[in-house]
Simulated scan of single mutants.
Amino acid sequence: MAAPLPRETITAAHARIAGRIRRTPVLRPGPDTFGLPGRLSLKLEFLQHAGSFKTRGAFNTMLSETVPAAGVAAASGGNHGAAVAYAARRLGHAARIFVPAISSPAKIEAIRRQGAEVVIGGARYADAQEACDRHVAASGALRVHPFAAAGTIAGQGTVALEWDEDEPDLDTILVASGGGGLVAGMASFWAGRGKRVVAVEPEGSCALHAALAAGGPVDVPVESIAADSLGASNVGDLVFGICRETVDHVALVPDAAIVEARRALWRECRIAVEPGGAAALAALLCGAYRPASGERIGVLVCGANVDAEGLAALA
């Protein structure tokens, strides 16, 4: 089973992509913000190019691999596709992105705006991944996997490298998980360094929680308000192996808590994110994760691809 990625691999990934990504800021909202005692650190990764952390893994993969004339291909609920399209355009590669029918129009438009071809690949993410795999087999395009690839995981792990430089004394870090590539990369970086990394999943989309409970990857049904960004039905062997060794546990949150966390981010900080971007904070607000007195908590805030209707719902 897979071991955590070496920190040197993540450090090398950061050096490789640093000139092409944004170093996103950290916000310390102050005591009693969100009605929570103690110190809180928010890593504002929703300010990343293309609206999510996935731009890091996309650049790292394309800069680490040989991209053929057929270009790159990816399956995505939306954010990964926008990131791959963004990176491909800036590196001069053609991109074809396969999305499920549940993807939001805002995310599909974000992909097209970057010049990529968009293909509706079925009803759910797993269907889009199968369609992408068929295209890769037929065309020879480079597949940029959203989570189950070492290059992707190393790129996503660079979030932890930056955050650790800005906030070296955090005790616990809460990270939303869909396919698990982000939390696997971040937990790899902090492995053995006394940090507690907690994955946060919606109750209706909990592939990592199910895998850890079963002792291996299993298929799960996906039904959540955050399914278009946290909707993987199976985390796969690589993510499972890393997370089994490095993630403290998985906190499950109901959709209602995600809705409230989005509203709280807007109300308290004027931060507008999609549901998946608020899932980590939801774990604190609903009590799915209860910090000890004096515990220093980091919350990753990611996923800015929200449409006008979603913005109106925050008011």
Rank of each mutant, 00 (worst) to 15 (best):
C269D: 04
L182P: 00
L42Q: 05
A288V: 07
G35L: 08
S76F: 04
P29H: 05
V250T: 00
A58S: 14
E117L: 07
G231E: 06
E268Y: 13
I153Y: 10
L170T: 01
R16K: 14
P6L: 09
E117Q: 11
D171T: 06
V72P: 00
V235Q: 10
A101T: 09
R196D: 07
K107G: 06
D127V: 08
L265D: 02
E45S: 11
A160Y: 14
P4V: 12
G236H: 10
N60E: 02
V259S: 08
A272H: 09
L311R: 11
G204I: 10
F53E: 01
A278Y: 02
L300F: 14
E109A: 15
S104W: 02
L284Q: 08
S224L: 03
A87V: 01
A131R: 15
A213N: 05
G77S: 15
R16P: 07
P254S: 02
L284I: 03
I242A: 09
S52R: 08
Y289E: 11
R296D: 06
S205V: 01
G277T: 05
R193H: 11
A210Q: 14
V99M: 15
P105C: 11
I271F: 01
G51A: 09
G19H: 10
R56C: 09
E130S: 14
P291E: 13
F147S: 14
M186A: 07
A70N: 02
D32I: 01
A94Y: 02
C132I: 07
L5S: 13
G241A: 09
A75Y: 15
A13E: 12
G294H: 14
L161Y: 04
L314E: 10
T11R: 15
D228F: 01
A304H: 10
S224T: 14
S64F: 02
V72S: 10
L284G: 12
D32S: 07
A261G: 11
R20P: 01
S293E: 14
L314N: 11
A283F: 08
G30A: 03
N305M: 06
S293C: 03
G92N: 04
L314Q: 10
A232V: 06
E109T: 13
I153D: 06
L91A: 10
A58I: 09
L161A: 07
W163G: 02
G241M: 13
R124E: 13
T61R: 11
F147K: 13
A70C: 05
V273K: 04
A176W: 02
D133I: 00
A279W: 01
R28K: 12
A199D: 03
A101F: 11
R113A: 15
I111Y: 07
R196P: 02
L174G: 06
A106I: 00
G303Q: 05
I17P: 12
I97S: 04
E165R: 15
Q114K: 05
P6W: 12
D228H: 03
A15V: 04
G298P: 05
A227G: 10
R196C: 07
L182C: 05
A74M: 09
A88L: 09
A83S: 13
P29K: 06
L27I: 00
